[in-house]
Design a protein around this nucleic acid. Sequence first.
DNA 1: ACAGTCACG
DNA 2: ACGTACGTGACTGTC
Length: 886
Amino acid sequence: MSKLILIDGNSLANRAFYALPPLSNSSGLHTNAVYGFTTMLLKLLEEQQPTHFLVAFDAGKVTFRHKDYAEYKGGRAKTPPELSEQFPLLRDLIRAFGMAQFELEGYEADDIIGTLTRIADEKGDIEVIVVTGDKDMLQLVSDRVKIALTRKGITEVELYDKALIEEKYGLKPHQIIDLKGLMGDASDNIPGIPGVGEKTALKLLHEYESVEGVLENAAQLKGKMKEKVEQHADEARMSKELATIYREVPLTTQWEELAYSGYEGQALAGMFRKLEFKSLLEKMDFSGGDSAEAGREQASIEAAVVGEDDMAELVGILPQVTALHVEAAGDNPHNAEMIGLALYTEAKCYYVPFERLQEGTAEAEAVKAWLQSSDKALAVYDQHRAEILLAWRGIHLRGTEFDVHLAAYLLDPTESALTLNGLTVKYGLPALKADEDVFGKGAKFQIPALDVLCDYLCRKAAAIHQLTEPMKRDLEESGMHQLFYGLEQPLASVLAAMEEKGIEVDTEALKQYGEELGSQLETIMHSIYDAAGMEFNINSPKQLGEVLFEKLQLPTVKKTKTGYSTDAEVLEKLEPYHPVIGHILHFRTLSKLQSTYVEGLLKEVRKDTGKVHTYYRQTIAATGRLSSQYPNLQNIPIRLEEGRKIRRVFVPSKPGWSILTADYSQIELRVLAHISQDEKLMEAFLHDLDIHTKTAMDVFGVSESQVDSNMRRQAKAVNFGIVYGISDYGLSQNLNITRKEAAQFIEQYFAVFQGVRQYMDDIVRKARQDGYVTTLLQRRRYLPEITASNFNLRSFAERTAMNTPIQGTAADIIKLAMVQMDERLKRDGLRSRMLLQVHDELVFEVPEDEIETMKTAVAEVMENALKLDVPLKVEVDTGSNWYEAK
DNA sequence: ACAGTCACG
DNA sequence: ACGTACGTGACTGTC
């Protein structure tokens, strides 16, 4: 017996679209409907094992139903673009599944399906399952035909046969159209009889069988009901007609064309890769088939653990090694436990437990020398991390030519995982396990048996090798070749060196500061308990909320998902109401300093060196900035004097040396001036004016002497807003003014800085057109949500489109300066060392005799790192610690 | 693991 | 009308 599955394509696509959260691939295509559709198809194939398959689609805007009834489906919301753009993908997907698909101008999918079920009914010897979200289709149910109605979600369906319809409605399948004739259907704009809903309609049908039966017997009805039925008889007849599926569509399709014999793995895998359905790719087994190019099956690879006696063989094959992987346990490479190295050659892969390199044998030394030699071109995964790991063990890795991790970041900086496993999926390479699956996670972390470990790490090295060519191609295609080789890759080594060097912390001073904070906190804590009249955990927002808003009955300003908001903004508004508020604000400030900057920092100081070694993350921030961890040295307090004092504990590592800081002044606004070519803004920087004062003069239309501190403050906020991708709401929040006033400021700003307005308009348009924005150095960020119909998502993407080229170009510039400064220090044989980067600031430690040289050199390098049409300005300062150098 | 809060540019 | 300024990381409390 044959089994035919008929899919109502439009209905299912809609279902999937609204049932699933937004989802898009890296080129900005929305894919949630396609994803839902895919899971549905896979489930049907597995559970039903059909012999025939067809997906039917609606075609043409106007069907015969519109000709009969112009309002048909009127008032229905237009299909959002996020969905309509998925239909072509859906077509491709069905093709990749090897299934028949069909549409016919002037007919809807349900008419095609209705016609096929009629043919099946006549033909006999076949079972049909129709999959749809449309209850009307129940009218097609027969002995041979069942309807699978989607329930919540997408893959869950309820299978209706005659018995179930009888049980649920007490109706025969053909009476479904009578039901709809009476009750109508708001979503298709089918009227029915007003005031008749499902309950009444069913009662009437149980009594009179059909619409016609009800109308004939209208006289027997009572009161309002009688009136309604008589008045709307024509609507009822028409509604029934509209609801009736047309089952005589002139189909030319031959039965054989619907035959389904399964999909071809490579075609489907290719489609999944295009759509970036990573979880499906990983879950499904696409092996088999005759394709020589492996597919995703776990090919067996030649892998060997290098034992003490095998070192000579290893040394022999070193020239053939093309890929290297360094594995260690722990997130922080500065204190991670080394596991070992995997060295890949075309013929065989070698796993080298790290102990092999520490045996002091001639062979071990040869391997170390090889690692440090520039005379090779290896592919690696995360060169920066590998360099740090090896550097702590006295090995200075060189000769790395390509880094698939760093390349993956440039190709899509918003991708959060960037795991090797994820990359193999994306590039259709043999499956690789996730680290978590091999090592376990958190407390369960465990290094597996040697053979498992060897196999896994060798597979990693093989994957790195195989990813290299396609990823280089992609980098080239997106114009980021130079960014990679000229900037990011050299930077990785510069960062590793800075981090390994570390920065000295005066732990005694830090502890003393901690004690002062501790006694102050103690005092404030008691003041708070006294003022509140009770003791509670001030650090608990929940308890604090209860005290302030329930016990003390203070007015609630703002709420969070879970309760009352007690953040600084709220507390500042409450300050006049109760003396406890001021204490709480102060307590918060000091307790933050104590926990994060005293205790937190002390934990990160290495006992052996007395230094902290932050880990700069080069592949985290979507804009191209660095981030800093363990500890984060990019958010050390400065704005408030109390916190700023922390900076005193960051000191030079040698007596008599100084800390030198160099800040870019207004780098983002200068970048904006260059990108937008705005005349006024460029002129301001060409004359090196105080940009906020100048903005105030222009926006408020006053002379320099008339600009008071408040005007300057407001102008400064406007400038910030411009950089962030301005909105009146955001500015109004920041300045505590009304939205209208904020909108006025913005309008006045744009009236003066017309080039900036032009840039903002252009960049958003370009983002919509290309799906991404770029920095001056071609760093790219995709913004799939720029075309969203959801206002919030779209607005966010628009602001990001405005901000990313600015913030990202500033990041490009300081990165360039770092690489150039590193070269400069080497070239001039200076002893000064670069210690930190804080987005627009570099920190060095310098010996006394290099202070003047360095002041000049740093400013020169930073100011000329990239030539813009406005000058870059750098302010340099020195002092005995980070606090004094500013 | 997540939410709330707050430190920085 | 919609409701957020852009980009990060660390700590505490709570579930």
